[in-house]
């Protein structure tokens, strides 16, 4: 699993897309933290919100564009290998669980690296490393990575996942917030399957997001273990 994880982790740093995304993430984190006093002066904030104001830039990017970023880089993590038949070399050497979970961990560590660096940049101005917000952010990224892996297993053609990934990446945050705050019973129940409901609380319910990610990964594995390569 370590070999697959390492390969996926390193491959995510290659390519112009990832460089642009990392640049956006770091730039937004740094400048939003740097000018957080300007942001806080314009709006009335509670003491807790004022304390976390340095992370607002990073959280906004992750909440609104995170899914798009993760899909952008990893929508084809499994299906491209099946489509191009390089997967044949992998499944004849390693178990399918090793391949799937190894790839997921590679994606997860890539985002862990990016988020840690972003938080370190923020800490230059906030003078602290907020572990709670960091954990919440990582739980959201875990969910997003698991969804990308699931999509890549369910849809065999990389072209389709790219298209669907872009649509979902843009729609999911909007839909998530709508489901979380809408009184409409037809939509409201869906909030339990989307991370935003768990993130708006200041307690450890965000851990449920990890459970959702785990379920998506198990579903992806159930499909992948029967998939012809």
């Amino acid at each position: 699993m370590f070999v697959m994880c390492k390969r996926e982790f390193i491959s995510l740093f290659k390519g112009i897309k990832s460089i642009i995304m990392i640049a956006i993430l770091f730039a937004v984190s740094y400048y939003a933290a740097k000018f957080s006093s300007v942001l806080s002066s314009g709006v009335e904030l509670t003491a807790g919100e004022a304390e976390d104001i340095h992370t607002i830039g990073l959280l906004s990017v992750i909440l609104l564009l995170g899914q798009l970023f993760v899909f952008g880089l990893s929508h084809d993590t499994i299906n491209r290998e099946i489509h191009e038949r390089t997967m044949r070399f992998l499944v004849t050497r390693a178990s399918r669980s090793t391949i799937l979970f190894g790839k997921f961990l590679g994606i997860w560590f890539f985002w862990l690296f990016c988020i840690v660096v972003s938080f370190l940049l923020i800490s230059i101005f906030s003078k602290k490393f907020d572990l709670f917000i960091f954990s919440q952010t990582m739980s959201l990224v875990t969910y997003q990575a698991a969804l990308a892996v699931l999509l890549s297993v369910l849809i065999p053609r990389p072209g389709y996942t790219m298209f669907l990934g872009n649509i979902l990446g843009l729609m999911l945050p909007a839909f998530g917030f709508w489901a979380a705050f809408s009184p409409n019973g037809w939509v409201n129940w869906m909030k339990y399957f989307i991370p935003f409901y768990y993130l708006e609380r200041d307690d450890f319910t965000f851990l449920v997001i990890l459970g959702l990610a785990g379920m998506m990964l198990l579903a992806a594995y159930a499909v992948f273990r029967r998939r012809e390569c």
Binding site: R85, T86, F89, R93, A94
Partner: peptide, 17 residues
């Protein structure tokens, strides 16, 4: 999967990186 480490496979219709 353990025995696969003792097996070498050159599959048909496969492509390299």
């Amino acid at each position: 999967s353990k025995v696969l480490k003792r097996v070498g496979v050159m599959p048909d219709y496969s492509s390299l990186y």
